[in-house]
């Protein structure tokens, strides 16, 4: 047993971090929020070049996957940089397509997902699809199977300006009947949890930096115990969410994934509240980049299984095995 990332996995995270830092993701997020997707598409291809989407795509379809641990490593970094777009959905769509009995749709659609040329969104019947107006592939998890939706309904704005929610149109090509949605939904949930952890880590880093330089009463506000203790609690919550996430990537057990979703999203959201409070009024502005992560933390909490649904899964499945 060695429950630690190896050197290669750590190097992968570091190289993604470096690429994303260089890409100035905050301005990409702001473009995306205005409906200008060019810079986001370009970033998406860089992420694909780094091998991220290939981690969800099996080798026979041009990928390197499935590699859930590496996917989590990558999605934590993407969350840390607030990368916009249907990331969890694209990962889950790859898993879904690869698992279909008929290999035709996978052969047709997966190479473009792996290469970053295409983005996929995915939604259960009656749910919103993230960025359904932008995605090239829209998968509807319908009562009779997976359908390739032809279009989308009206666009609703999310609390996170970089996320736009649409229902998918009914009907469309039936790619597979009675497909097992479980693994795809689990991957979407795990990928969302991983992004949430990254969002929380970014909020913590930014807030630690801010309270170190912001002075009041002649000293950095970060020297006050009330401030320190809130940040210590955020750090503790995030560090205890991290192993839940990697444990879930290893077992892919639905209860483990649900636990990781609760752990990461609660930690990220609590960190967002702390970050907002400790930034003071400047943190409450759209102008301050902090807002990109603050609003993301709220949105990811609900996506692919909110706290209630995930806790339900934990009490119905987790307790006896752990």
């Amino acid at each position: 047993m060695r429950f630690l990332l190896d050197a290669e996995q750590r190097a992968f995270a570091a190289s993604l971090d470096a690429r994303l830092t260089a890409a100035d993701t905050p301005s990409v997020v702001r473009d995306w929020s205005r409906g200008e997707h060019g810079s986001g598409r370009a970033l998406w291809r860089k992420i694909a070049d780094a091998g991220v989407f290939g981690l969800a795509v099996p080798e026979e379809h041009g990928g390197l996957g499935p590699r859930p641990v590496e996917l989590v490593v990558a999605l934590v970094e993407l969350g840390r940089h607030a990368v916009p777009g249907p990331l969890a959905e694209t990962v889950a769509a790859a898993v879904l397509l690869a698992g279909l009995e008929d290999t035709g749709p996978a052969k047709r659609l997966l190479p473009a997902l792996a290469s970053g040329e295409a983005m996929a969104t995915m939604a259960s019947e009656g749910s919103y699809a993230l960025d359904g107006d932008v995605a090239d592939i829209r998968l509807a998890l319908a009562h009779d199977g997976v359908r390739l939706a032809a279009g989308h309904g009206p666009v609703s704005r999310s609390l996170d300006p970089a996320r736009r929610l649409t229902p998918l149109t009914e009907g469309g090509e039936l790619l597979g009947g009675a497909a097992p949605f479980g693994p795809a939904v689990d991957h979407a949930r795990l990928a969302t949890a991983a992004q949430a952890l990254g969002v929380g880590l970014a909020l913590l880093d930014r807030t630690v930096a801010y309270v170190g330089q912001r002075t009041q009463f002649g000293v950095p506000v970060g020297s006050f115990q009330a401030v320190k203790h809130r940040l210590a609690d955020a750090k503790i919550a995030l560090e205890f969410a991290r192993p839940l996430l990697f444990g879930a990537a290893l077992t892919l057990d639905p209860a483990d994934i649900a636990a990781a979703k609760v752990g990461a999203c609660e930690a990220a959201y609590a960190t967002a509240r702390t970050a907002l409070q400790l930034h003071g009024a400047i943190g409450y502005t759209a102008e301050c980049d902090l807002s990109l992560w603050l609003t993301r933390a709220r949105a990811l909490r609900t996506a692919w299984g909110g706290p209630r649904e995930c806790r339900e899964l934990v009490v119905s499945g987790g307790g006896r095995r752990w």
Binding site: M1, F3, L4, E239, F240, A241, R242, P243, L244, F246, G247, D256, A259, V262, G263, P307, R308, R311, E312, V314, V315, G318, G319, W322
Partner: peptide, 19 residues
């Protein structure tokens, strides 16, 4: 929810300690 959090916390502590 509180029972779920107890289970999740125990799992988190187990995995954190293993790491």
């Amino acid at each position: 929810d509180r029972v779920a959090d107890a289970l999740i916390g125990a799992r988190a502590y187990q995995l954190f300690t293993h790491a």
